[in-house]
């Protein structure tokens, strides 16, 4: 029985296979409409995340399966003090597969050690969120046609952004990838991620201003810079506009740039950019549903 806790649990070949399946589902939805007939997905969300939960539930429904679960800890036995391990052992009696989100880091690892059915980590605190990374990989493949030979700009809060760390780890396994890390000094990528890039012989550069590099990028992955992360107000005022993507900056970008964002956004991408065909972030949300369908099929061992 397989679980998905960390994106690195999957080999490159398995990720390629998931992407192929997801692309086939997009092209031939009818072929997959009943592959999970009679199967149940439990969405155990110990903290709210409407987008991720709905994406999982929509994915299971499109495969013909059913869903059950809870959307916050207060409506589960966790509020009575039940442990995560007990919860998944009970739910494993009712469902065929579990998607779990939990505020504590490593909760899915603990759960997987006793769970009788496959567990998908739908986010554990600031730690892992592998289905977001799978979503990002499918987006890059769909939008750029490849997962190698890319210059990937990561912009914003690169210190605390788990999606960014996970994407760096996942993309570092592909050939000829170069990262451009765009962030204020306070929010640079942590040292251990840089050590990983050195180990994997992946080239990267660090810059402070998006304007200086946007013209060199194949992909621009935006994240939010929060005011409270800055040590002083002067730096925030000096740099805040650098991390807001607007139509002026888009003019400096390549015609085939792909703009991504894990969403929700606040103000880091101007709404005027939404109508630009290079803005891929809402398509990215759609791809998330299809890659989750492929993942559910893989872990349940069902085929079309």
């Amino acid at each position: 029985m397989r679980h998905l806790i960390d994106i690195l649990d999957l080999t490159i070949e398995e990720i390629d296979q998931l992407i192929e399946t997801a692309e086939d589902i997009m092209a031939n939805p009818a072929k997959y409409a009943h592959v999970c007939d009679g199967k149940k997905l439990a969405t155990l969300f110990f903290e709210p995340s409407t987008r991720t939960r709905l994406s999982f539930e929509a994915a299971m429904m499109e495969l013909g399966g059913n869903v059950l679960g809870f959307s916050e800890a207060s409506s589960s036995s966790a509020s009575k003090g039940e442990s995560v391990c007990d919860t998944v052992q009970v739910v494993g009696c009712y469902a065929d597969i579990i998607a779990m989100r939990h505020p504590k880091e490593g909760a899915p690892v603990a759960a997987a050690s006793v769970c009788p059915v496959p567990i998908i980590n739908a986010g554990d605190g600031g730690h892992n969120h592998p289905t977001q990374t799978l979503t990002d990989l499918l987006t890059i493949r769909k939008e750029k046609g490849r997962l190698n030979q890319l210059v990937i700009g990561l912009c914003g809060d690169l210190q605390f952004g788990r999606t960014v760390h996970s994407l760096i780890n996942a993309m570092s396994r592909y050939k000829s990838i170069r990262f451009v890390l765009i962030s204020p000094n306070e929010l640079k990528v942590p040292e251990y991620i840089k050590e990983n890039m050195h180990r994997d012989k992946v080239s990267y550069m660090e810059v402070e201003r998006l304007e200086d590099v946007i013209g060199t990028l194949d992909i621009l992955y935006m994240t939010r810079v929060q005011r409270e992360r800055f040590f002083n107000e002067a730096d925030y005022v000096r740099l805040k506009d650098s991390y807001i993507l607007d139509t002026e900056k888009m003019k400096m970008a390549r015609k085939d740039l792909c703009v991504m964002h894990p969403l929700p956004r606040v103000n880091e991408i101007s709404r005027a950019v939404d109508s630009d065909p290079r803005a891929a972030y809402f398509r990215q949300a759609m791809y998330g549903k299809y890659i989750r369908e492929a993942l559910i099929m893989k872990l349940l061992g069902v085929e079309a």
Binding site: V84, H102, K104, E105, G106, A107, A110, D124
Partner: peptide, 13 residues
């Protein structure tokens, strides 16, 4: 020692 780790709260882990 990570206060956000599941091992801080899960019983008998």
């Amino acid at each position: 020692k990570n206060p956000r780790c599941i091992s801080q709260v899960e019983h008998e882990l």
